[in-house]
Design a protein around this nucleic acid. Sequence first.
DNA 1: TTGTAAGCGTTATCAC
DNA 2: GTGATAACGCTTACAA
Lengths: 351, 351
Amino acid sequence: MTRDPSAPTTPGASTPATIAQVATAAGVSRATVSRVMNGRATVAPVIAERVRQAVRDLDYTPSTVARSLSLGRTNTVALVVPDLANPMFQQVLRGVTQAAAVDGYRVLVADSAENVDEERLLAIEARMRCDALVLCAPRMPIAQLTELLPRVSPTVVINRDLGALAAPALSIDYASGIKGLMAHLLSLGHTRFLFLGGPGQSASNQERLEGLREVAASHPGITIDTVTCGAAIEDGYAAAEAVLSNGATAVLAFNDLVAVGLLGRLAELEVSVPGRVSVTGFDDIQFARFATPSLTTMSVPQMELGRQAWAQLRELLEGGQPEHAVFFRPRLEVRSSTGPVPDAVGPVPGA
Amino acid sequence: MTRDPSAPTTPGASTPATIAQVATAAGVSRATVSRVMNGRATVAPVIAERVRQAVRDLDYTPSTVARSLSLGRTNTVALVVPDLANPMFQQVLRGVTQAAAVDGYRVLVADSAENVDEERLLAIEARMRCDALVLCAPRMPIAQLTELLPRVSPTVVINRDLGALAAPALSIDYASGIKGLMAHLLSLGHTRFLFLGGPGQSASNQERLEGLREVAASHPGITIDTVTCGAAIEDGYAAAEAVLSNGATAVLAFNDLVAVGLLGRLAELEVSVPGRVSVTGFDDIQFARFATPSLTTMSVPQMELGRQAWAQLRELLEGGQPEHAVFFRPRLEVRSSTGPVPDAVGPVPGA
DNA sequence: TTGTAAGCGTTATCAC
DNA sequence: GTGATAACGCTTACAA
């Protein structure tokens, strides 16, 4: 026994009313109370009303935990992200939360604080409390992911290509995105590029690099340098000196956060953008269009990612088949942070 | 009965192992398994090891839901906010999540989507699944809040002054904050002000207005106009025309979001800030210093609010006394969006 | 239409 | 030290 056995029938007690108390108060069985609470058809109107009265009197709300145990279902999804500070994941959270709420599901958030080692346990633990999991684990080694996924099923993985892995995945086509950015910059005449790389382990960073390699291969006249930078505003801010000393006329930041940080520092240094360098971001976070200059970037459907994640989980929870992996192709948003290469004399060969 | 009664002992079955299966496999009672799982002292080492082996074999993880029911504790807190799109609440979420995680608690988020009517039920429902609640309900009428709080106790309320209400509260001293902003602008020589008000119902908006009234009363020579604007970027963006037609030389936006939106539109219109108008925000969101011009604003300890909220809840959960209400006084961050009044001839009387 | 009782997977009390 | 056993609060066959 766990609770204080005294005063189990005190009505106005601070301890929440139980179904048994309501049953007693209404002079019926607990089964009948349950039926009324769940809108089950066949309960005599008179009885039903008596139950409802007792419910009101006692301020009764069914225990979610007890229901969960009995039903084997919590009506909760977990969202595991590497960093809640990133607007990208915040939007995903919003998307999941909104979509799940429509179906009466709540969302539990877990932030691994970029701690790759903890991520596995965190996911398992979070999944325990929930019916399903949305997992963003861009740096988790594929082997570990392979081992993990069956344990946390049903799960949908966001933001990384799973290959043949047995879980639904929603990904962004980062390679295609970065190529779109390059095409835009090439059309402006740029030939010297600098990529401010994100966390090296991250899957999406690898995809961006792959995209850049392809562009480099097909455009012999250009140079694409890479420096490791990071994924946060501060990283972009700190990268300004590296950018200036590099001599590139176009900088591709890992994401919008990095781009905004860079823009901020360049403004302080009174370096003209795009007069002296063009800058691009990635993600199209809410602030991208309000940065100065407004940021040219690749738009990623962040909330939609969250919504779709829930849609797929819902499907799985209802016993449906896992969907095929979905790739979102980012869309180029040309704004004011990119412009013609300084002293441009014409289009670059092969652009 | 709810589950399929067949194959209750199949080890590798897809259905998670239960404590009973582990007990059987280890040849002990469930009580012993429980003791081992919870690190209870007295279990013979040999037996303990046998149990642990069975746990590994069966991939056993104790059911969180069952534990919760038995213990009467979920190790989860709920956070209810009006709008997850607001960076302010995102930071509060981060703060709560981080602090709670340290104590082994998870966070459930619920976004009322600015729907004041739903907020009450949402809070009750969220509280049901959790041990405690962090409530941000800036627009909920005080009467409703009074009725609600006892039902969702323990709860800490964020971002509004509760007066004598029986719940711990963590608030920002908005009146003092807006006065600080005014003092700064007055010192720059401004005399014509425009306040872009937030949602009228919002408690924090009322406090700002009160602060402005006090300043107006003590500075006869100035005028402070007010227009209702909103709390989102788009609202600030849309307010640019109203700002320009008003003729004020200093604009106090409801929050940073509004200020950033306004700044964005003013830049498009090629209106110099602070050359023609000075603009201030409120909150000091992450992007404030990266806006162009960087935003003068009142800094609010957003994550700290979340951390403290958890600290107080933790205290309450451990049976402690409710803390006194805490007020955070915002700190002025002078950046580049404010400057001397155009054609300033000297300080304003009484500044 | 309503009640009885078993079961969901734990923990904790109390004998042995 | 270890094992029965009774909770925790709910849902749902099945019986009446």
